[in-house]
């Protein structure tokens, strides 16, 4: 009878684990599709943001938000530009840039991953670093922050949208 218990327990556990694993793979697949949603400005790389949000804490994927403003023509005036809201599994991320004289003079995070205290901790640690990098590089083409991949990717994606809006 002990054998019966052991066998059924093993089978049941294996089945449950398999089901969990399968639906986990499924979740990772759909997450990328449901990655970004519309922001304030209409443009923005839905495809770019989706790729980064889908990676869900895995591999570094530094340059995913590449493309660096470049081709931007006129509108070198000043002002503030708000990026898209990028949804992540830890909460929405949205940044705003202040442009003066054709350069980024400030980056402010309007929303940061805040789902759970651990996310807040990551956000608080990653946001100043990202801001400093962006101000130095004057683009979204910067390294993601280790341990804060999801936050970084979303941050840079939203930033890119804001840069596009500013035609930088």
């Amino acid at each position: 009878m002990r054998i019966r218990a052991a066998v059924s327990a093993t089978l049941a556990s294996a089945g449950i684990l398999l089901a969990g694993w399968q639906s986990g793979a499924h979740v990772a697949g759909t997450a990328s599709a449901a990655g970004s949603t519309a922001g304030t400005t209409g443009i923005a790389g839905g495809s770019v943001s989706s790729g980064s949000a889908g990676s869900a804490g895995s591999a570094g994927s530094a340059g995913s938000a590449g493309s660096a403003g470049a081709a931007g023509s006129a509108a070198k005036a000043g002002g503030t530009f708000v990026g898209d809201v990028v949804q992540t599994r830890f909460g929405p991320v949205q940044v705003q840039i202040t442009v003066s004289g054709g350069t980024i003079s400030d980056v402010t995070a309007l929303q940061l991953t805040d789902d759970g205290g651990r996310s807040v901790q990551i956000s608080n640690y990653a946001a100043p670093l990202l801001r400093a990098e962006v101000l130095q590089a004057q683009s979204a083409n910067v390294q993601t922050i280790g341990g804060a991949t999801v936050t970084s990717d979303a941050y840079l994606t939203s930033l890119q949208a804001a840069l596009d809006a500013a035609h930088l």
Binding site: G20, W21, V27, A28, A31, A56
Partner: peptide
């Protein structure tokens, strides 16, 4: 696992 934990 269902939450995509294995990707970590």
């Amino acid at each position: 696992l269902a939450d995509g934990g294995a990707s970590g």
